[in-house]
Design a protein around this nucleic acid. Structure first.
Lengths: 211, 211
DNA sequence: ATATTTTTAGACACTATTGTCCAATTGGAC
DNA sequence: GTCCAATTGGACAATAGTGTCTAAAAATAT
């Protein structure tokens, strides 16, 4: 489901899910202060009172949104990481394919994008919340990537001193073009993701492939 | 002057400058909707009416803030770029030194940080504004870096196919650690900038230094 | 010293939002 | 069909913010 066309709430989902989903979009669009409970209620196709029944108040709503997104995002990422190549026949091709999937997930997946935007915008308001997110969210992801890269190094495909740094740089290269071109509203297509992944992996391997 | 300790407005500056400076901090802290004119007035040490006299309304205030920041940031960046090494004796050392200065500027300089944060947060509200910023701000910067990298390639130090891509990846590597570690409130010290620059340049040269 | 412009503080109407209360309605479980 | 919990819509007070107006004060120019 697309953000822009999601005006009709999905009646199959539970009230609670619809509230959290709607709240996520509204918070991201308007920021914490700008988001109104009424707007969330309308978008969720739910009365305002129901929201208060479920989450208490605006603070509770925000915290529940972040908690739900963090959890979902982690689960998705875990699933994705299973495809990381460990003993590839063609390193560049397989790493590129994986990277394209990863990038596609990060940029297209509503959950990831929302969480990222919320983290950037509201970290000042809820530092504790995003300390947790950083540790179990982005930090956890980076260390998963680092572990896989170490595996590749061990298997003789790569060489580097610091796996954590390599992981950070890998992710930075992968999202380099997205950050500058797409973050302001637009989202890359699958083909664009594939192109970005290809260019990122090419540079990454120029730096870290075993010679 | 530090953001946190800037409670006492600088009386030497013109009213207008003080208003724009205060407005920038408040907008960044609270977002467009969350920022109140009263808060800006207090922080600027100015009456609310004066703000309305100068900039018309909240929209005008926001646009003027962005305009002022864009201009200042471009000027600063131009100045910085003059130090980019063109015929270095020690490529890695000189590029690292330049990169450290660049990173320090980007992360420490109030203007840059404010603009970046505003761009990320309010791009949905003012797409035109940030299209302009992207073209003349970040886009302009990237093409300046690309030009310098091309120069280094021409002079036999580097080799790559696409200078614009190399510039993007250079900047991505340079800010990789900052994005993940520091963006949520903390700012790197000069030493930390030096370290990040060193690691970024090392990887960049592994990928692009002429062999 | 005087005239002119800028600034100030506070009052003001207007709107938006939060969070609460409640009576009426709905929907599922049994 | 009856019961119980969840939900609804709407009214409500309380608060906060925008933008306007005004008369007094301050700064600036002449």
């Amino acid at each position: 489901m697309d953000i822009e066309t999601a005006e009709t709430p999905d009646l199959a989902k539970s009230k609670r899910d619809r509230i959290l989903e709607a709240a996520a979009t509204v918070f991201c669009q308007d920021g914490y202060t700008g988001a109104s409970i009424d707007a969330v209620a309308t978008k969720a196709g739910v009365s305002r009172q129901t929201i208060y029944n479920h989450v208490g108040d605006k603070d509770g709503l925000f915290k529940d949104v972040v908690a739900a997104l963090t959890e979902k995002s982690a689960a998705n990422f875990l699933l994705l990481m299973e495809d990381f190549p460990e003993r590839p026949e063609n390193l560049e091709a397989e790493l590129t394919a994986f990277s394209a999937r990863l990038l596609n997930h990060v940029t297209q997946n509503k959950t990831s994008r929302w969480l990222l935007k919320l983290a950037e915008n509201e970290s000042g308001r809820y530092p504790e919340l995003f300390t947790v997110w950083r540790e179990f969210g982005s930090g956890r992801k980076r260390s998963m990537v680092a572990a896989q890269l170490s595996q590749l190094a061990l298997n003789g495909y790569l060489e580097f001193d610091d796996a954590a740094l390599a992981a950070r740089q890998y992710l930075a290269l992968l999202t380099a073009e997205w950050r500058t071109e797409f973050q302001l509203g637009r989202f890359p297509s699958e083909e664009e993701c594939a192109g970005m992944a290809e260019r990122a992996v090419k540079t990454f391997l120029r730096a870290f492939a075993r010679r």
